[in-house]
């Protein structure tokens, strides 16, 4: 882990040196919603410490892809292995994987009936069986990391969108996950709040966390990602390191997408 951290801040061009350890492996994954084919033959290997940005037009299956990784969606064909555990119908395996994988949603999904602190301690107390005082200490630690410890006793409804999303990140981190999934974390935010959330994500990236981020924030992709994956119509069309991806896209569909998204 430490090796990765230092190499991440090294010379700008070229891929960072990543460990050989595989965090997530997807082999020939297919998924249908009814008759609609949302994921077509996805093959993807994510190494430990790797930061991946998934982009693509809406409806391309990118959200579904990362939601398959903690089985909020069930794939119908192929194999998904997270940290050595294969996702099947086995509930035990699903529990194991969900403990190791944190997720941040587009609409925050904070629990409105619990305070910020209770949001953060709920899962550690009930899933990891951590004593309350310890869970609260951990929660405060992460709330400080996302720079809102003073809001701990408030309810989510009293916070701004950006603050809520940072709480959501802290809530996921409280489980000490090995992988973090971000499903369009800034899409539901007012423009002036995007930066505070992205900053939090950048600082998280600096700790060497394995991250899969679905986002349209291309600036974030350029500065943080080790690899950018472009999806269209359920397929991985192209993947490359950000430098190459943005300057020299190979597929026509990628070019079209980039021209649309970068034109503003």
């Amino acid at each position: 882990m430490t090796a990765i951290q230092t190499s991440g801040d090294g010379t700008t061009p070229g891929p960072r040196q990543l460990g050989d350890e595989v965090a997530i492996e997807m082999i020939g994954v297919h998924k249908w919603f009814g008759e609609f084919h949302v994921l077509r033959d996805i093959n993807l290997t994510v190494h430990r410490g790797e930061r991946i940005v998934v982009c693509g037009p809406s409806g391309s299956g990118k959200s579904t892809l990362i939601r398959c990784i903690n089985r909020l969606e069930e794939h119908q064909k192929g194999k998904i292995i997270v940290d050595g555990t294969e996702l099947t119908g086995n509930l035990k395996n699903i529990e194991v994987v969900r403990r190791e994988v944190g997720m941040v949603f587009q609409h925050f999904n904070l629990f409105p009936h619990l305070t910020v602190l209770e949001n953060c301690t709920l899962a550690p107390i009930w899933v990891k069986k951590v004593p309350k005082a310890e869970a609260e200490a951990t929660a405060m630690h992460y709330l400080e990391r996302v720079r809102i410890p003073e809001q701990a006793k408030k309810y989510p409804g009293q916070l701004s969108g950006g603050q809520q999303q940072r709480v959501a990140i802290a809530r996921a981190l409280c489980m000490n996950p090995k992988v973090m999934l971000f499903d369009e974390p800034t899409s539901a935010l007012d423009p002036e709040m995007v930066k505070e959330v992205l900053d939090t994500m950048v600082s998280l990236a600096e700790t060497g966390m394995t991250m899969l981020v679905v986002t349209h924030e291309m600036g974030f992709a350029k500065s943080v990602a080790d690899r950018v994956i472009f999806m269209d119509q359920g397929e991985v069309v192209e993947q490359n390191e950000p430098e190459e991806f943005f300057s020299n896209p190979r597929s026509e569909r990628t070019k079209l997408f980039l021209s649309q998204i970068l034109s503003h």
Binding site: H30, W32, G34, R40, K77, Q233
Partner: peptide, 21 residues
């Protein structure tokens, strides 16, 4: 859903029998 003409050119794979029809 942003579907366009691209789908037609590919072989349409059907979902496994147990999940459709």
């Amino acid at each position: 859903m942003a579907q366009d003409t691209g789908v037609g050119s590919r072989s349409v794979e059907r979902p496994p029998v147990l999940s459709a029809g």
